[in-house]
Simulated scan of single mutants.
Amino acid sequence: MRSARLSRAIDTGLFTLPSEGRIAVLRPRIGDELGDLPRDRLLVATGFRPDHDWFAARGYACAPHATGEFAAAILCLPRAKAHARAMLAEASLLVAKGGPVVVDGQKTDGIDAVLKDLVPRVALSERLSKAHGKLAVFAAGADLSDWAARPAQVDGFTTLPGVFSADGIDRGSALLAGALPADLKGRVADFGAGWGYLARKVLSLSAVKECHLVEAEADALDCARLNIVDDRAQFHWADATTWKAPRGMDHIVMNPPFHTGRGADPALGAGFIAAAARSLNPQGALWMVANRHLPYDRSLTTLFREVAEIGGDGAYRLTRAAFPIRAR
């Protein structure tokens, strides 16, 4: 979808790539094809670890953030409006004045609203519509600084636009934090740690020896480093589904994500459960919150000897799963 719009925009002359200089591609997603762009000049800048690793495995230069000056930038629109605006402000500063900033996104991700917001701020090109999305171009140099990402404070935690639950503590996570036993001890991992809410609760317990915060979104992990000042905390920018624990964990806490796009994807949560089973020691326990409608029972009962519901409410279920079953 994105590649079709990029190809058409280049072929029709909607924008011309500069003949030299680096090109930043901001936040592309797994499966996005960038074949019409000069690979040796590209930097794929994405803080989402699965996307980063997918492009790196295909030979692209990758980094969680773009730094320095670029001749052009291609912005792959995220769903969150505040995040999209922050990326536009970033791109306008990254690119040399007058260089092209390409804005591309799906209609379901709000591209129409973003382009409408840009109209009074920049000289926006003709819009190219294709494959259920739109693409437009403007010249770098416009002052979009009022859209720049700014940290927010949520009940004593620092958050940033684009991270999960940036505007407030997630209710499911709050339920899980309240259900964790006071005698939790040993080595603990927080899968999908976000900006550190659950990990701070874990580290408030004196018998915890170490807490590994495993988070795929670099911006969220940067917030967690600010929110948690504790020598027992270890921070891992990693996809929890593939992370390898340095040794068996005694406990894992998690509020696993279940969206890869607009629709629910229960396979993602199931991947978190499988990773937890691999990462726990033989007597270890998983403490999890999830929406009640998500079909995780089969994964839990297949991978753990003991599975029990320990609380929740009408929307969320709290589960303790212990004694992971090892494959023979």
Rank of each mutant, 00 (worst) to 15 (best):
G47A: 03
P151F: 06
H65C: 06
A73D: 03
L135G: 00
G263E: 15
E126F: 11
D40F: 10
I111A: 02
L43I: 00
H251V: 15
F48L: 00
L34S: 05
P120K: 10
R171Y: 07
A290M: 09
S92E: 09
R127L: 07
T319W: 15
R27S: 06
A9E: 03
A275F: 01
T302N: 15
V154G: 10
A290P: 06
F15P: 01
F235M: 05
D109P: 08
I169W: 15
G312A: 06
L303C: 08
T301W: 08
E309N: 05
G248Q: 09
A149M: 03
D40C: 00
G269R: 08
R317V: 09
R232F: 14
E210N: 08
I74H: 01
R85H: 15
M1V: 00
A189M: 04
K116T: 12
V289N: 13
E309G: 04
G186C: 07
G99N: 09
A96E: 15
H259E: 05
A139R: 14
L42M: 01
H236E: 13
E217H: 15
A308N: 05
W243L: 10
G21L: 12
E217S: 12
A189I: 07
A277N: 11
E306Y: 02
D297F: 00
G133N: 05
G162M: 08
R49K: 04
T242K: 09
V229M: 05
L14F: 10
T46C: 01
T108W: 12
L198F: 02
E126P: 00
V163L: 11
S3H: 11
L26T: 04
G194F: 00
T46F: 00
G192H: 05
S299Y: 14
L184M: 14
A177E: 03
G178H: 08
F157R: 07
A96T: 15
M288A: 07
W237A: 10
Q153C: 10
V95A: 03
V137L: 03
I10D: 01
D297P: 06
T242F: 01
L160N: 08
H259V: 04
H83M: 02
L75A: 06
A277W: 06
V289L: 11
G263W: 15
D104W: 12
F235N: 13
A113E: 08
L213Q: 12
A45T: 05
M288Y: 14
K201Q: 12
G133L: 04
L175H: 04
M288P: 09
H52R: 11
N227Y: 04
A264P: 14
A152P: 05
A9Q: 05
M1S: 13
S19H: 11
R58N: 01
I228G: 05
H65A: 04
S92V: 08
W147D: 02
